[in-house]
C-alpha cells in the first residue's frame, strides 16, 4: 500500500511521518521515530508494554492504527520527565522503591500511572493504583513495589513543597 503522510504531536512536538496504512502506532513510534521507550511484548493487547497516552488517556499503541492518531496528541515515556527536570516524581519514586527490575514493562506502567495521578487531586490509594495498572503486566519486579512507588509518588506530588512548582 502507498504510504501516506501522518501528522500528529509526540511529547508536545509536531511530527510528520510517511506511513503505510496498516502500520500500528507502536511500529511508527519505535521504528520510524526511534521512540524506543514504548515496548512490544505481545503485540495483541495483553501485556500493556506498549502503553502510551493519546489525548491524555493511556491506550495500547499496538492496537491503534497509526493513521487513526492524525492530529492527536501522543505522550510517550520519553516525554514524561520533561516538565520535571528530566525525572518525573513517579520515576524517582519507582527508582527509590526498586520498582523497575528489567525495566521493560516500566514505561507502559509509568504512562498508566501518570494518567491516574493527573486525574486524582490528592494521594491515591493502593486499590486505585491496582485498578489503574490492571492492564500492565510485570514479570520480574512484582506488583507490590510498583504500587508502593505510585502511592509514594502521589503523596510526594500532593505534598506542598516550597522549592518546586513541578507537582501538578
Amino acid at each position: 500500500m502507498t504510504a501516506r503522510l501522518l501528522r500528529f504531536s509526540v511529547n508536545g512536538e509536531p511530527v510528520t511521518v510517511a506511513v503505510e496504512p496498516q502500520r500500528t502506532l507502536l511500529e511508527v513510534l519505535r521504528y520510524e521515530l526511534d521512540l524506543i521507550g514504548s515496548k512490544q511484548g505481545c503485540d495483541k493487547g495483553d501485556c500493556g508494554a506498549c502503553t502510551v497516552q493519546i489525548d491524555g488517556l493511556p491506550r495500547l499503541s499496538c492496537l491503534t492504527l497509526a493513521l487513526a492518531v492524525e492530529g492527536r496528541d501522543i505522550q510517550t515515556v520519553e516525554g514524561l520527565g520533561r516538565a520535571h527536570g528530566g525525572c518525573h516524581p513517579l520515576q524517582d519514586a519507582m527508582d527509590r522503591w526498586d520498582a523497575a527490575q528489567c525495566g521493560f514493562c516500566t514505561p507502559g506502567i509509568l504512562m498508566s500511572a501518570e494518567s491516574l495521578l493527573r486525574r486524582s487531586p490528592g494521594p491515591v490509594t493502593r486499590s486505585e493504583v491496582r485498578e489503574a495498572l490492571a492492564g500492565n503486566l510485570c514479570r520480574c519486579t512484582g506488583y507490590t513495589k510498583i504500587i508502593d512507588a505510585v502511592v509514594d509518588a502521589s503523596e510526594q506530588m500532593a505534598a506542598p513543597r516550597d522549592e518546586t512548582e513541578a507537582a501538578q
Binding site: Q91, D95, A100, Q101, G103, T106, L110
Partner: peptide
C-alpha cells in the same frame, strides 16, 4: 539500581 533510571526514561 545502577541503571534503572535509564530504563524508566525509555
Amino acid at each position: 539500581k545502577v541503571d534503572a533510571m535509564a530504563r524508566m526514561q525509555g
